Amino acid sequence: MKGLIQRVKHAKVEVEGEVVGEINQGLLVLLGVEQQDSQLSAEKLCKKILNYRVFSDENGKMNLNVQQVQGQLLIVSQFTLVADTQSGNRPSFSCGAPAALGKELYNHFVYSAKQSSVPCQTGIYAADMQVSLQNDGPVTFMLQV
């Protein structure tokens, strides 16, 4: 499972012109699910993201996590993160989870995140989404479990 996290001042996701998820300060999480992933993968990645220290402390050092800054999460499914781009000029998605498994594990990740004290918003799994954000820094990391 892969999570591309971006520290944001605000972010939103729209489907068919309607805002379905929106946050202020926090993390935009683009989530990719691979064939071998499991509920344990989702839980481990969620825990890592919730505890990953990407927010600045009083000394300007990245020492605080999203929970410590009372931030929010916007979780968006992003199957293109798991593309194999090693050869050719077209990505292969053979490593990606089948749609049913991908949706199940995406939903489990969201469930795990909602068990924390961090307010969570989401996109809609497999929808054509438009994501808008103001990246803070910019600060972007790819996390994988």
Rank of each mutant, 00 (worst) to 15 (best):
V15Y: 12
A100F: 15
K103S: 12
S87F: 05
V145I: 10
K103Q: 12
Q78N: 14
S116M: 06
F55A: 05
L45V: 09
Q25I: 12
E34R: 15
K2F: 13
K61W: 09
V131Y: 03
G96H: 00
Y106M: 02
P119G: 01
F55S: 01
Y111D: 11
L27W: 03
Q6R: 02
Q70R: 13
P98C: 09
K48D: 00
Q67V: 12
L133F: 13
Q72W: 06
P119I: 02
Q68T: 01
G60S: 14
P119S: 06
F55K: 01
E104L: 14
S117D: 08
A100L: 14
P91I: 13
G32S: 09
K103W: 01
Q78F: 08
G88V: 02
Q25Y: 09
K114I: 02
V13M: 11
A126F: 03
E14H: 04
D37W: 11
S94Y: 09
V118H: 06
V69G: 01
A11H: 10
G17H: 12
Q78L: 08
L143R: 03
A42G: 08
S94V: 13
G32Y: 03
V76N: 03
V13L: 14
G71N: 04
N107A: 15
G88I: 00
V66M: 07
M142D: 11
G26E: 09
G88A: 08
Y52L: 06
L45T: 06
Q86C: 10
G32M: 05
G123H: 04
G96Y: 00
N89I: 05
Q130K: 15
S112V: 08
A113K: 03
G32A: 07
R53D: 00
G137W: 01
M1V: 08
S56L: 15
Q144E: 15
C46I: 06
V19E: 07
V69Y: 02
I49N: 00
G96F: 01
N51A: 04
K103L: 08
K2G: 01
G102Y: 09
S56A: 14
A42R: 04
D37S: 11
T122P: 06
L31R: 07
H108K: 08
V15D: 10
Q70N: 15
E34G: 07
P91C: 12
C95P: 09
K47R: 15
L74Y: 10
M129S: 06
V33Y: 06
Y111T: 12
E104W: 09
I5F: 02
V82F: 11
V82T: 15
R90Q: 13
Q130P: 00
G26K: 06
S117I: 11
F55Q: 05
K114F: 02
Q134R: 09
S56C: 10
D136I: 03
C120K: 01
Q67G: 12
K48F: 07
I124C: 00
L45H: 08
F79Q: 11
L50T: 03
N135G: 01
C120Y: 02
P138C: 05
I23D: 02
A11E: 12
K44L: 15
K48N: 01
Q72E: 14
